[in-house]
Amino acid sequence: MLQIKCPCCGPRDHDEFRYAGDASVGRPAHTDADFERWYRYVFVRENPAGAHREYWQHVMGCRQWLIVERNTVNHTILSVNFSRGTPA
């Protein structure tokens, strides 16, 4: 069980959260019509073996979307922040 220290609710097991993958990919503006940018945003992944910025939502708690920095090799969690207000 990963323990994610939700900045709102405190440390909780990861199964209270919904995962949503890589948070380092920048979402194009909603009006952006550039195919390449959308293709890369939706499909291309760095997939690092090591530190990974990723989205988790505390669905069974405050429902905030968080950006968690986690090591994908040893599962150490390096930081947890609200997605709102955190620069991409």
Binding site: R18, Q57, Q64, W65
Partner: peptide
Amino acid sequence: AADVMSRLEFLLDTAWP
């Protein structure tokens, strides 16, 4: 239902704060 809700929250929290 749950997926749509979470998706809306995602867009508001991460894309269009």
